[in-house]
Simulated assay, not measured.
Amino acid sequence: MNILIINAGSSSIKFQLIRMPLETITCSGLVERIGSDEAVFKFKSDKGTIEEEGSIKTHKVGLKKIADVLLDAEKGVLKNSSEIDVVGHRVVHGGDSFSATVLVTEAVKKEIQEYATLAPLHNPHNLEGISIAEQLFPEAKQIAVFDTAFHQTMPLKARKYAIPYDLYDKHGIQVYGFHGTSHKYVSEKAIAYLNKPASKILSIHLGNGCSITAIVNGKSVDHSLGFAPGNGLIMGSRSGDIDHAVIFHLVHTLGYALQDVNTLLTKKSGMLGLTGFSDLRDIQTAAENGDTACQLALEMNAYRIKKYIGAYTAAMNGLDAVVFTAGVGENSSVLRKLVCADMDFFGITLNHAKNELRASVLREINDVTAKVKVLVIPTNEELEIAKQAFELCG
């Protein structure tokens, strides 16, 4: 079964064509920095690799470019669209409606659209990916895998907000959690590596969107993102945790419209708001060259992560491993070093030489005497989506 995976993030699209159940990757690729004139397109198959830089202003343009390359007579891997049996889509917010993988129907698309107000940087792009895939691969089944599903195991004491009960009971206002596909994948890899099913793990997903999940015995028990993917850690353009009084001050005192506040906190804050840069690589380079705003932003980012490590270690009453994953978590030795500095009280100490090594495999970067394992595990949301899609359709 040929399963094409489309994983649309807030500023990127990752894709893989996977032959199931063998888990053979026919091709893979990435569109990143969408919305800029320096967007990057990467494609890899047995026929070679493609890497291009240029303007890709929207997700729609990126998705069409992916489809064109897949079907290209010279560079592509498909003779025609009918070779795709299933298209698996990552969908960020499924609310209370979806606790498992589903076949996409018009009703499902309508629900995804309704949750777009809670995940404005993601659900619209996820839905756009589904619509375009329906046009390009009309004979394939379209499958949706929801990031919120993994967090259904969180206990009520972690899911509920301290607001009137009716808002939870009648309107579903609660912590839903996100990046669940990634957290599920890397936590399973960590448990297998540790050979410890009864484990206490912190999975730290750091990309343009960021989150940390407390995982006990393979189950999510707490998570930094909430009702929508905007709070918790400092992100690429999202503020993370902020006193809600700031919102009222912006509206009532400074004259902001509510939509402007939403735009400010989701698209103009975070590392972008602190530095003027949207990509962490640019921020690290500027920091190395003495940019004090970028230096402070990195310190703030790490400090926020440290606070969550402390809180979740207390909540779990212990810690066996910390996992860094996703684009920033896997590649930024700078941020990992800042996060793990002065954490020996928790049994976290880095081996700095191992931390600096670059590799696309699971690796241990803690000091040999450390009580807590510090792991870098490349996430593979695409493979996890393929597994779940195959289980549903196979």
Rank of each mutant, 00 (worst) to 15 (best):
N2T: 09
L4W: 05
G9R: 09
S10C: 14
S10L: 13
I13S: 06
I18Y: 03
P21T: 11
L22S: 15
T24L: 06
I25E: 14
T26W: 03
C27A: 12
S28M: 12
I34E: 03
G35W: 00
F41D: 01
F41C: 01
T49E: 15
G54M: 12
K57E: 14
T58R: 10
G62Y: 10
D68H: 13
E74N: 15
V77R: 05
K79R: 15
S81F: 11
V86K: 01
V87S: 04
H93S: 14
H93W: 00
S97L: 04
F98T: 07
V104T: 03
K109N: 09
K110E: 15
Q113S: 15
Y115H: 02
L127E: 09
E128I: 11
I130D: 03
A133I: 00
E134S: 04
Q135M: 12
Q135P: 02
P138A: 05
E139L: 06
V145W: 00
H151M: 08
M154S: 10
K157N: 11
A158C: 05
K160C: 11
D166P: 04
K170Q: 15
G172Y: 03
G172N: 11
Q174D: 12
G177V: 00
F178C: 06
G180Y: 09
T181E: 08
H183R: 12
S187L: 09
A190C: 11
A190Q: 02
A190I: 09
Y193N: 01
L194C: 07
K196W: 01
A198M: 08
S199E: 04
I201E: 08
S203K: 01
C210I: 02
S211F: 02
I212Y: 03
N217E: 10
G218L: 06
G218W: 10
V221F: 05
H223E: 09
F227G: 06
N231I: 05
N231R: 11
L233K: 12
L233N: 02
L233S: 05
R238M: 10
S239F: 07
G240M: 08
D241C: 13
D243P: 10
D243N: 14
I247H: 06
F248A: 13
F248W: 10
L250I: 06
L258G: 07
V261A: 07
N262Q: 14
L264I: 06
K267I: 01
G270D: 07
G270E: 02
M271R: 09
L272E: 07
T275R: 06
G276L: 06
G276W: 05
S278W: 02
D282R: 08
T285K: 15
N289Q: 12
T292I: 10
A293L: 14
A297S: 09
M300V: 07
I305A: 00
K307R: 14
Y308H: 03
T313P: 02
N317C: 01
A321N: 01
V323M: 02
T325C: 07
T325P: 09
T325K: 02
A326P: 07
G327H: 10
V328C: 02
G329Y: 04
N331M: 08
L335A: 08
C340D: 04
D342Y: 02
D342N: 13
F345Q: 07
I348A: 02
T349W: 00
T349G: 04
N355S: 05
V361E: 15
L362K: 02
I365E: 00
I365K: 01
V368P: 07
V374P: 12
V376L: 07
I377D: 08
T379D: 13
I385K: 13
A386D: 11
A386Q: 11
Q388Y: 00
F390Y: 13
L392K: 10
L392A: 09
